[in-house]
Simulated scan of single mutants.
Amino acid sequence: MTKRVLIVEDNELNLKLFCDLLRAHAYECEPVRDGREAVERARAFAPDLVIMDIQLPHVSGLELIETLKADAVLKAIPIMAVTAYAARSDEDRIRGAGAEAYVSKPISVTRFVDSVAALV
């Protein structure tokens, strides 16, 4: 059965890269460019994993993680944060918000795909 991944990323190049990588590894992807649509799209798409940029316009990725984890239906879906924030304190803050995994940008393709596979 194909695993489904919701990708919340406002940067078009990163969004295309993530979708292309995951589709090449037989994942079904649902891109979301605006974080304000993420919760509704997660409910409609029912992903096995959410990949979340932290620096989003209009709403913080941290806020979205907390919102997803507070939702009775969505809280069990693992979240992998992908961000340019690379300090240890940033990772602690992101995991504290509820993300199960953290990958820093620029991504390592192998680490990215391995992290996704470990979560789904």
Rank of each mutant, 00 (worst) to 15 (best):
C29H: 08
C29P: 06
V32F: 00
V32T: 01
R33N: 04
D34N: 12
R36G: 02
R36I: 03
E37V: 01
E37G: 02
A38N: 03
A38F: 01
A38V: 06
A38T: 08
R41S: 00
R41G: 00
A42E: 07
A42F: 05
A44S: 13
F45D: 03
A46C: 06
I51R: 02
M52T: 09
D53H: 02
I54Y: 02
L56E: 08
H58E: 15
V59L: 08
V59Q: 10
S60L: 11
G61K: 11
L62K: 12
L62E: 14
E63H: 14
E63F: 10
E63G: 08
I65L: 11
I65R: 12
L68H: 07
A70I: 12
A72C: 12
P78F: 06
I79C: 01
I79H: 01
I79N: 05
A81L: 09
V82Y: 00
T83M: 01
T83Q: 05
T83G: 02
A84V: 14
Y85L: 12
Y85G: 03
A87K: 13
A87W: 10
R88Q: 14
R88F: 08
R88Y: 09
S89D: 13
S89Y: 07
S89A: 10
D90I: 10
D92T: 13
D92R: 14
R95V: 09
A99N: 06
A99V: 08
A101Y: 07
V103W: 00
V103F: 00
S104P: 10
K105Y: 00
I107R: 02
I107T: 01
S108Q: 08
S108W: 02
